[in-house]
């Protein structure tokens, strides 16, 4: 069941907020999210903790959550923790673990103003906007990667940290109903060229321009924390900077948004822990392999919504483009070594 009934939601919110009455004035399901369902809601509260009109986001787990997902409960706790540390993340409000609202665990957060659609090459951002935005992003990621996680919060991420990244990729590859020799070869190469293990940080796990909200040319929010885990900070940076996420704006190496040098400078000012930038090309390859595996998997998924089904089938075809990119990246890497 992936239905959200206005009446059920209104009653639940009335109880949670101690309001006299709640009216749901609009409710619409949003696209996106790897394994979550998302709705945007406008609610008017008479009395209670959220008196007035609030724009809210409801995020619900699907029937088939993806393996590395930390789950709704952990994501809710993590957002609370990050908000308390003044990160630019949506403010989580209420958690429904019973499945009353959507049939699956869900939580409500306040809507963050901003959109991720205005970052591409055709956006109205000028050079100075891009520079500032890149620095904002570098600052937020540096702050995340230097964060000390209290031991009572560490349990949130235990599941993701049990298996090495490459082992997880092998598991995902073996779940596909067909063989992919290029990915097999790339994983072998990644294993043989694995960098020395360095200090670990809290990683977002899906840090790319699609999960960054921009309003009036400034960063307003970082969303979709379901793949957060403890890992190498360069995993996030490699994912953010991988060419496959720049959407044609290739000369802006920092996520298709700005220059890598601006990102690095801002990141390092915030986070004095040493990052070995020489390893970044390796992590760009990791990112491209990861996205290729996701694309192949998405191509096999089904949906009740025909437009979504077509989008998934088209995403499946990105797999071969990413395989092409992997071959090119590894060949370049080998050439530089010589």
């Amino acid at each position: 069941m992936h239905e959200l009934k206005a009446e059920t939601l209104a009653n639940w919110l009335t109880e949670k907020t101690n309001a006299i009455k709640t009216e749901i004035t609009s409710i619409s399901q949003l696209n996106g999210g790897a394994s979550m369902y998302t709705w945007e809601i406008t609610a008017s509260f008479e009395g209670g903790l959220l008196e007035g009109t609030s724009r809210l986001i409801l995020r619900s787990q699907s029937d088939t959550p993806l393996l590395p997902s930390i789950g709704i409960d952990c994501e809710f706790q993590l957002l609370k923790f990050l908000k308390s540390k003044k990160f630019q993340v949506p403010k989580p409000v209420y958690l429904d673990m019973s499945g009353l609202l959507t049939g699956n665990p869900a939580f409500i957060m306040q809507k963050t103003i901003g959109s991720s659609k205005f970052i591409g090459a055709d956006s109205k951002l000028n050079i100075l906007d891009r520079k500032q935005l890149t620095r904002d992003i570098g600052h937020q990621l540096g702050k995340l990667h230097k964060l000390k996680i209290p031991s009572n919060q560490l349990r949130l991420f235990k599941k993701a940290g049990e298996q090495s990244l490459i082992d997880r990729f092998y598991t995902q590859l073996d779940l596909l109903p067909y063989s992919l020799p290029v990915i097999e070869w790339a994983l072998r190469w990644l294993e043989k060229n694995r960098p020395v293990k360095r200090s670990q940080s809290l990683c977002h796990g899906d840090f790319r321009n699609g999960n960054l909200l921009i309003h009036r040319k400034r960063l307003t929010g970082i969303i979709d924390w379901e793949f957060a885990h403890i890992g190498n900070p360069l995993e996030d940076i490699g994912w953010f900077c991988a060419r496959c996420w720049r959407f044609g704006n290739d000369k802006e190496e920092a996520g298709g948004i700005g220059h890598l040098s601006d990102f690095m400078e801002s990141y390092e000012i915030t986070n004095p822990r040493k990052v070995n930038w020489v390893e970044l090309p390796y992590w760009n390859i990791v990112a491209t392999v990861k996205w290729a595996l996701i694309a192949h998997r998405q191509g096999l998924r089904d949906s009740w919504n025909s437009a979504r089904k077509l989008e998934l089938a088209l995403t499946g075809f990105k797999g071969v483009q990413l395989e092409h990119e992997i071959l090119k990246l590894i060949k370049n890497h080998e050439r530089v070594k010589i």
Binding site: G120, P181, R243, C244, G248, V320, Q321, H324
Partner: peptide, 24 residues
Amino acid sequence: LSQDVAERLEASTPDFKIHQKFSQ
């Protein structure tokens, strides 16, 4: 591997071989 990928690209998205740009 390159030969295999080139053939598959040619069949599905030949433009990518020329421009090599990822779309959204």
